[in-house]
């Protein structure tokens, strides 16, 4: 009996010592170099946008936990939740993931340093533009062993973009104001992917030249720039009257006068992930700048 146990112990120890897990060296979007095992089996995401990217890359089955802010796609609903802001490090460690995936926009690299000390690697994803989405998908596919699915999704997103771009109507694009919130008028400033979404939809975003990343617009700005369409995450069943309640002078804004105010689900604007393309399709619909030839699902 004891001999068996000793044998078993030796066997296990031997396995550990003699067969090191095959590993590789990779670089994430922040330029951090990580040494990772070839095969990933357990991953944790620290931002909803990253979860969406992982699922779209075909690696949703590897997720063992997502953040408490995750709500898409539905298949992550049943997964355990961890607090992401600030990161609940204990919960991450307890899950023993092979890799933690974080977003440059949301997460703090110092959390990654702390997790690294605990032996857990963190890969940062950065999505600043629409073209970053297919690029991030392909990178995640390579990383997580789902390169084929990731490539297909990335290709189909790029095809949506091409279709949108090639079907742009001629003539002057309507001016568009994209709002995050209707009361305090937060919007998107220079460098945001939102302006590209608006352009693909056939419009021209009026906040593209504002230097702040999340500018807080004045009523005066909106009055003088006179947007012809207003789009925002304004909630379900949005009524134009509610906009006028907060901003009574906007009766003079062409978009309000022509009742061209549209509410789109906030996540399609705010989450730098695959659904931005669905957002662009929805914007095209709202702007009424012509149908997209052969448009498929944006998911």
């Amino acid at each position: 009996m004891i001999r068996h146990v000793v044998f078993l112990v030796l066997l296990v120890a031997g396995c550990r010592a003699e067969a090191p897990v095959p590993s590789r060296s990779v670089t994430d979007d922040l330029g951090r170099t990580l040494v990772l095992p070839d095969r990933m089996e357990r991953i944790v995401t620290l931002a909803p946008s990253v979860t969406e990217l992982v699922v779209a890359a075909g690696a949703g089955h590897l997720l063992v936990a997502v953040t408490d802010a995750d709500d898409f796609p539905p298949e992550v609903d049943s997964l355990p939740r961890i607090q992401a802001l600030p990161v609940n490090r204990e919960a991450v460690v307890a899950l023993a993931p092979d890799l933690v995936l974080a977003s440059e926009q949301v997460n703090d690299p110092r959390d990654a340093d702390a997790l690294a000390e605990l032996g857990i690697a963190t890969w940062f994803v950065r999505v600043d533009s629409l073209s970053d989405v297919p690029r991030a998908l392909r990178a995640l596919g390579d990383l997580l062993g789902t390169a084929e699915t990731a490539r297909r999704t990335a290709d189909s997103l790029e095809a949506i973009r091409t279709r949108l771009r090639s079907s742009l109507p001629s003539g002057r694009p309507p001016t568009v104001l994209v709002l995050i919130d209707d009361r305090t008028l937060f919007s998107f400033g220079a460098g945001s992917y939102v302006h590209e979404m608006v352009a693909l939809a056939g419009g021209r975003s009026i906040t593209a030249d504002l230097e702040t990343r999340a500018p807080r617009l004045s009523d005066e700005f909106v009055l003088t720039r006179a947007p012809e369409v207003i789009v925002g995450s304004l909630g379900d069943d949005y009524r134009i009257e509610r906009l006028l309640e907060h901003h009574p002078t906007w009766t003079l804004v062409p978009a309000v006068r022509d009742r061209a105010v549209y509410s789109v689900p906030g996540d399609l604007l705010l989450r730098p992930g695959p659904r931005l393309f669905a957002g662009a399709l929805l914007l095209r619909e709202a702007l009424g700048t012509g149908p997209v030839p052969g448009a498929g699902s944006g998911e």
Binding site: L217, S218, F221, R225
Partner: peptide, 10 residues
């Protein structure tokens, strides 16, 4: 507050 950043309201 109205004039420091163009188009914005601090």
């Amino acid at each position: 507050a109205r004039g420091v950043l163009p188009g914005q309201d601090l």
